[in-house]
């Protein structure tokens, strides 16, 4: 039977992708951020997941406002990265696990989640940056991927409570899959940041630290916020915390914290990193 071995949270902002491309790992601005990741990779080397379910938000590459689904689940043989408008060379495609995707979709729809299934799906920095951070050696990477995209572009966004329940349903779905697979769930994005408006540059360290603590043992506390609360407390893009809640829901009641890091700022963002192992 398939098993969720744990989860990782990480920022996914494009500036990280640029810094990786320029190999700024020892640059004084970037070092405190990148120094958080060797411990994550050591954990991944130990648990050796077969599949990564990558919970992210599309930032206007694969989805436009003509068709904006709340929750999308990839069901493709591979996922292409494409130019997002700033002219960067796209990364090579990511192999999928469509059989597990369809199992997830069957299970989630039966569980009354109104999923958008995507048999072709371009993934943007929200997906690729975490993959580059966690598996930098592309040639050695064997993990398959399943993108789960969540609408954070067009309000109404799904409530934190709904997202936490989606995570729980993903957890049940994986545990009911017949194949012997180890699955890791990535909750990407966050923590506090705001790009738009006179409030651009808003960061809330106290809120971020509280989230990093509560999400381990009391995620329900975070699921009680409204989206409006998250925008107020974490900034307009800080609402990406809902992606972390999906990850956390999938891990089940008890988890143990393997590793964490927090650094302000990278670009406009408070960057939170966590490795949680399922009990």
């Amino acid at each position: 039977m398939a098993k969720i071995v744990g989860g990782v949270t990480t920022s996914h902002i494009p500036a990280i992708g640029n810094a990786i491309a320029k190999e700024l790992f020892e640059d004084p601005y970037w070092k405190p951020f990148f120094d958080g990741y060797p411990a994550v990779r050591a954990w991944l080397d130990k648990v050796k997941p077969d599949v990564a379910i990558v919970v992210y938000n599309d930032h206007g590459l694969n989805f436009f406002l003509d068709k904006m689904p709340t929750f999308s689940v990839g069901a493709a043989f591979e996922y292409e990265n494409r130019d997002e408008g700033w002219g960067l060379q796209p990364l090579p495609p990511y192999p999928g696990d469509p059989e597990l995707s369809w199992h997830l979709i069957e299970s989630l729809v039966a569980d009354e989640f109104d999923i958008c299934s995507c048999q072709e799906m371009a993934v943007d920095h929200g997906f690729t940056v975490p993959m580059s951070l966690l598996w930098p050696d592309r040639a050695a990477r064997t993990v398959k991927t399943i993108p789960v995209a969540v609408n954070t572009v067009q309000h109404p966004l799904p409530t934190p409570a709904r997202c936490f329940k989606l995570g729980q349903a993903i957890g049940r779905a994986v545990e009911s899959y017949g194949k012997d697979l180890k699955v890791v769930v990535l909750g990407t994005g966050g923590l506090s940041h705001q790009l738009d408006g006179e409030r651009a540059g808003f960061i809330n360290k106290a809120f971020d630290l509280m989230c990093l603590e509560k999400i381990v043992d009391e995620p329900e506390t975070l699921a009680r916020y409204s989206i409006h609360d998250l925008v107020r407390l974490a900034g307009a893009q800080g609402a990406e915390l809902i992606l972390w809640l999906i990850m956390r829901g999938a891990l089940g009641d008890k988890v143990s914290k393997v590793h964490s890091n927090y650094h302000i700022p990278i670009s406009n963002t408070g960057a939170g990193l966590l490795v949680l192992e399922s009990a």
Partner: peptide, 10 residues
């Protein structure tokens, strides 16, 4: 027309 058929017929 489920996932198995969808994978075959895309």
């Amino acid at each position: 027309f489920d996932g198995a058929m969808a994978m075959r017929g895309y």
